[in-house]
């Protein structure tokens, strides 16, 4: 049971503007949305947080749409931070533009978690096993961060700074994820501990187009964008060469779910499968 739930405070702003103002005043507030991670931390006593700010009611962060941030730019897919996995699975737009994200969303938790868990929450939680993160990284997505005074966009590849740390400052909120058009075939595979309700042992998202992009989860403190491997394949290198490079780009560990050896081996196998299936 959560630590003396009555001792936990919750600010409930009605607008994004109000939320950002509150955060500017008090950056210690921890943002919550679907609570599928936050409440687990509270239940197990691993979260020391006592003061929270609730974003769940901010409908302005829910939409999924094509937008043109710059008039000169091609339209990008903009997924509001509060879009749930269920929203993503149901969105024809996401299915068309980013089917690998739909595939990833379908494999998260069960229906109850998909109904509550949000894309913004998955990014913010910053787990190396976050299911959507390899997809976002492989798609070259950028995270839209807004504070009371400013808005900035950070590429996924630069967003995480270490294990469960990111460039997001305490007074900033993730408002959306923007995904530019993805050129090429998209590929996604999660290897979990079982077929549903599973935390991944390893997962890979790949894009095979004029430029190859590959991102892998659960093999390092943060999601790994395997640039060297992808460049090798883009440049016409052999699969074996790419597999060897991949082995150097990841740093998996032993944990209660799997082993270092397994993750190493399966990462290379997944690369081969990606390459074979997107030919």
């Amino acid at each position: 049971m959560p630590a003396g739930a009555s001792a936990l405070s919750l600010a409930r702003p009605r607008t994004l503007k109000a939320a950002l103002a509150l955060l500017a005043e008090d950056p210690e507030l921890m943002p919550i949305a679907g609570c599928t991670d936050v409440f687990v931390g509270l239940h197990f006593g691993t979260s020391g947080q006592r003061r929270f700010i609730d974003l769940w009611g901010l409908d302005e962060l829910r939409g999924i749409a094509l937008v043109r941030p710059e008039p000169s730019e091609a339209p990008v897919l903009r997924i509001g931070a509060l879009a749930t996995y269920t929203d993503i699975i149901a969105s024809a737009l996401v299915r068309r533009r980013l089917p690998m994200l739909v595939a990833a969303a379908r494999e998260i938790g069960g229906a109850q978690i998909q109904n509550r868990g949000t894309l913004g929450g998955n990014v913010a939680n910053a787990s190396p096993a976050g299911d959507t993160l390899p997809v976002l990284a492989a798609a070259n997505a950028r995270i839209v961060l807004r504070s009371a005074g400013a808005e900035r966009r950070v590429a996924m590849g630069e967003y995480y700074t270490g294990y469960r740390t990111s460039v997001r400052q305490a007074h900033e909120l993730i408002t959306a994820v923007e995904i530019p058009p993805v050129a090429g075939r998209q590929w996604w595979r999660k290897v979990g501990t079982r077929k549903a309700q599973a935390i991944s042992k390893i997962m890979m998202a790949g894009v095979r187009g004029p430029v190859v992009r590959i991102a892998i989860g659960s093999v390092a403190p943060t999601v790994v964008v395997a640039d060297k491997t992808a460049r090798c394949l883009s440049a016409g290198g052999t699969l074996a060469e790419a597999q060897a490079l991949l082995g150097d780009e990841i740093t998996p560990i032993d944990d209660v779910r799997s082993t270092r050896e397994y993750r190493h081996q399966v990462a290379q196998n997944l690369l081969a499968q990606f390459w074979r299936e997107t030919e």
């Binding site: 069960g110 501990t193 079982r194 077929k195 549903a196 309700q197 599973a198 935390i199 209660v256 779910r257």
Partner: peptide, 8 residues
């Protein structure tokens, strides 16, 4: 983390 079968 203790893995029993799900409906899937």
């Amino acid at each position: 983390n203790y893995i029993i079968p799900t409906p899937m």
